[in-house]
């Protein structure tokens, strides 16, 4: 029994995949806290789809995947951030146009020219088969950068997330904080795309944070819990993926969803009340007068 459970560790691709899935889970868990509390879940979902366009384009023209999709992703993230902050047109509509157009472009490019190197299915639903040392290094770099940002700018990020208007008065450059968060989000999606797939990344961002919210009323503790929950779900989900012979993205997300359901049931009314509040409107609405 134990031998059977440990058998996949004999394979290098699995060890790499497990490492990437665990780090991806922790990364998405931590970034997901800001995404959920700022009401950016739709942006996270849309951005993952937008990056698919960059993935397809880089695959087509033979540019390094991380470079091509990375530039595309960061550009999309900053564009979405700009639209959201300026409120020139409805942000939901603008995000929908930018991200779905980019996703559709990716689909069209794959349909017209086929794939070169990376798998179309893996990009959509995640796979551990293609995970190599470069993926491990990529996600390690993103994890270190995201961790450094959260550590060094913890107070400014918390203030900006909770109360951007007052944070602005207190001297926090909230525009820069939002842009940094979007760049880190794009980097996280990019680095985790191989294992989770673009269609499932949003769940990896939202579920650990929502689960953690049901367990605590403290921001610091929510951040720690979401990171650990994300990492555990990545680790367990990846093992299940191997043993059940199901793609890694769905198993990781289903593991997280199962944990969410268990916590939802155990914490009862208290947990439900806390979770119900995470989508409450923040103090972003500008009021004239």
């Amino acid at each position: 029994m134990i031998g059977e459970l440990l058998r996949p560790f004999d394979f290098e691709f699995f060890r790499n995949g497990l490492l990437v899935a665990t780090m991806a889970g922790a990364l998405c868990g931590a970034i997901g806290v800001y995404v959920v509390l700022k009401g950016m879940s739709y942006i996270g979902h849309g951005l993952s789809h937008a990056i698919f366009g960059g993935f397809a384009a880089s695959s087509l023209i033979g540019v390094n995947f991380l470079l091509g999709a990375g530039v595309w992703g960061v550009a999309s993230a900053l564009m979405i951030n700009g639209v959201t902050r300026r409120r020139v047109i409805g942000s939901d509509a603008a995000i929908g146009v930018i991200t779905t157009a980019s996703f559709a472009l990716g689909l069209a490019l794959f349909a017209l020219f086929g794939t070169a190197g990376r798998s179309f299915d893996a990009a959509l639903f995640g796979s551990i088969l293609g995970v190599g040392t470069d993926d491990v290094i990529a996600i390690l770099v993103v994890c270190v950068l995201a961790g450094a940002l959260i550590f060094a700018r913890y107070r400014a990020l918390l203030f900006t997330t909770f109360d951007p208007e007052v944070a602005d008065v207190a001297g926090v450059n909230t525009a820069r904080m939002d842009a940094l968060l979007m760049v880190v989000l794009a980097g996280s999606i990019l680095a985790t795309m191989q294992v989770l797939g673009v269609t499932l990344i949003a769940a990896a961002l939202v579920i650990p944070a929502s689960t953690a919210r049901m367990l605590t009323n403290s921001f610091a503790r929510m951040l720690q819990l979401a990171t650990v929950i994300g990492a555990v779900c990545g680790f367990v989900g990846m093992n299940l993926s191997y043993h059940l012979d199901v793609q890694s993205g769905p198993t990781i997300v289903l593991t997280a969803a199962t944990l969410f359901g268990a916590v939802f049931a155990v914490t009862g009314a208290t947990g439900r009340r806390r979770a119900a509040g995470i989508t409450a409107p923040g103090p972003l609405a500008a009021r004239a007068g």
Binding site: R155, L158, A170, S218, M222, R274, P281, A285
Partner: peptide, 29 residues
Amino acid sequence: PQVETINWSFPVTVRECVLMSRVGGRRLP
């Protein structure tokens, strides 16, 4: 700000909330 603009569901304790104003000096979380 007006209390109506506060997101009262945000996971933040009184201590964490008050400490937010100390954003300009110490960088450690």
